[in-house]
Design a binder for these strands. Sequence first.
DNA 1: CTAAACAGTGGAGTACGGTCCAAGGTCAAG
DNA 2: CTTGACCTTGGACCGTACTCCACTGTTTAG
Lengths: 119, 119
Amino acid sequence: MRIGELAARTGLSKDTIRFYEKNGLVAGERLANGYRDFAPEAVSWLHYVRTAQALGFSLAEIARTGEQLRDAPDSAAALSKLFEEKIRVVDARMAELAALREELDARVGSGCPLRAAAP
Amino acid sequence: MRIGELAARTGLSKDTIRFYEKNGLVAGERLANGYRDFAPEAVSWLHYVRTAQALGFSLAEIARTGEQLRDAPDSAAALSKLFEEKIRVVDARMAELAALREELDARVGSGCPLRAAAP
DNA sequence: CTAAACAGTGGAGTACGGTCCAAGGTCAAG
DNA sequence: CTTGACCTTGGACCGTACTCCACTGTTTAG
């Protein structure tokens, strides 16, 4: 698939996809005419990229995950390990959020304004 | 307290605190000699700022929260409403993380590499 | 054959969130 | 009265993640 279709299917701009390719976040083959040619898998991969990014992972981190996926091509065990690692990171982030939530929760009704030195 | 102490107590650099003040994230009075003078509350407020930021809130969003806190000075009800709102945002973010977690979880053991078009 | 729709490149510009630096003012200790 | 720690400002610079632009090449439909 060419860049326009990938853009339409992922909701990203063509520029963003070119930027991602330049930065090793997505692999692009080339057609004879020089146009980029993406595998159908790129769609779900890019959806994953956006999700992970929205949750606070940097493009560099995500690219590293991609590399690791490539470097452990067929070993289910290696992939599972990688996913389990990611899950631990996600769990840690959720725990932090839960802590913040509790902090907020404790103040509901108490009227204590976070002891804010707000502007 | 002057900027050096606030920096030491929050783990932020002085430059960062000046940057925050310039952007309305923290209030600084001035001493007669021009030095910034921060209330002790600034310490916990800045801790909150860093927590919220680490969890994906932009400084602009956080500054807005600060303003709202200031603008609803003593109304426990208004503050509670504000905190409840924040909690909803946090809950939404946690739900997203849970979804990502599940997505990852489903792939553990399956060996399916996210159908990655990795570089 | 031409026009429109698509693709390519390089480079500049933007927003955010800092970080660093130079030049200088203030203040307490010795 | 100087030294050193502390503070001030303005402005340059950085990394991340795009976004836009001008100019050029390719393909398809009428």
